[in-house]
Nucleic acid binder design. Structure first.
Lengths: 220, 220
DNA sequence: TAATTAAATAATGTCGACATTATATAAAAT
DNA sequence: ATTTTATATAATGTCGACATTATTTAATTA
């Protein structure tokens, strides 16, 4: 698909997706057609087409003749998403370790350096830290050449991000937690470069599950 | 969502999904709005909303101002889907083995019996065999209580079905292949009931990958 | 006053119309 | 004859209108 010249529906989809993930629209909130039309200054069709795609992505639910609502959140769902995500990440990492080449290794080392340097720095801007964190994990699994697994990974990441954002809004970063986190990253890289798939898989699963308990406690 | 009183868009989605998976519309085929309106006797909106959902489900692609097309197929995509499917099925089975109770075990034994009996029978109706085959595999993973993993499993199954249908149309079933297949089912059940997760996972992955080579050769 | 019913208001889901863009056809040029 | 340009045709994507269904408000009853 050509993304340079999108149609209105696609633009609305991107914006709405973002607005939901960023918590602009809260879980369970009604998405009234008229409100959305006014907000985004477009007609009925693009709104409904975007909402249709969001239904397929599980970010929106609809009831016939009653309209559209942002998908609800729950502790069970949070746990399920993170658990599934950790397993999928494990699969991706396993495949990456089995198929990754020199170029893949170098990408990991580069990304790790960027993350390590920033984690040690004085004033940490969380947005920048998240970029580097994201890139590091992306690098780890980049050797996995399964488009479908990647797509699943991305979709679950998106869903988990919504939960994380609902939590982050009211929480500042904890320095010690960040350092513990960073130690795991280094350990992870070592295991991956040693091609120790079993241990790496185990660690990445634990790593991803780490924030779950904290998010649970802080869920609105 | 209430499925008893669906709206037009949802009905069209179901029908269209089926028509694509069953090969009523072929890979790469253009899905012209007017044609679909005439075929299903509805207006523009429900058609476009259904197509929007199919885009999110990867069964349809669209290009701005050029319209909608059934997603293309390829050997690479076929392989990727089956590979991802086998891994996901492995995850589901692993979790089922770890969490399954007596009731789950009995469901497996019951489904296995139905499949075994039918596989030995004289005149095998493939549609009925597929039902029982499906139910057996469903029973195996039914102990897995992760909605998300199940959803991913279902989504990949749907995609693989399209490939299988494109192949099945021109192929009759091979008796020996069916018996070999059936032997695997029995072995699988034994491993699962013994709670031998590692071996069961290995076998299910191979089991799912079995038809890939044959489908490859017969792809249109 | 609380519960029930009726009327009024508002929202949803579907439709056909229309402007814009792409494609097919015909005319002109090399 | 082939390429290029101009014209005609067709399809897409968006819009507001409207019938249908839900929700709110007011009126009626117990």
């Amino acid at each position: 698909m050509d993304t340079s010249k999108q149609n209105t529906a696609s633009q609305i989809l991107d914006t709405l997706t973002n607005d939901i993930i960023q918590g602009e629209f809260l879980p369970g909130e009604k998405l009234q057609i008229k409100t959305l039309k006014d907000r985004y200054k477009v007609g009925t069709s693009p709104i409904r087409e975007a909402l249709s795609q969001l239904i397929a992505k599980d970010l929106v639910v609809s009831e016939n003749q009653k309209g559209f609502y942002v998908s609800n959140i729950s502790i069970d769902d949070l746990t399920d998403i993170y658990q599934a995500r950790s397993k999928i990440e494990g699969l991706c990492l396993d495949m990456a370790i089995k198929k990754g080449d020199d170029f893949w290794e170098s990408k990991i080392i580069a990304a790790s350096h960027l993350l390590a340097k920033y984690s040690k720095s004085e004033n940490i801007d969380m947005s920048e830290w998240q970029n580097r964190h994201f890139s590091f994990h992306e690098a780890l699994v980049s050797g996995c050449d399964s488009p479908r697994l990647f797509q699943i990974r991305q979709s679950l990441y998106e869903k988990s991000t919504r939960y994380r954002n609902l939590w982050l809004q009211e929480n500042v970063t904890n320095y010690e937690a960040l350092q513990a986190n960073q130690n795991e990253h280094v350990a992870l890289m070592v295991l991956v470069l040693e091609r120790d798939s079993i241990s790496a898989q185990k660690l990445i699963e634990e790593h991803i599950m780490t924030p779950v308990e904290m998010i649970k406690k802080n869920l609105p």
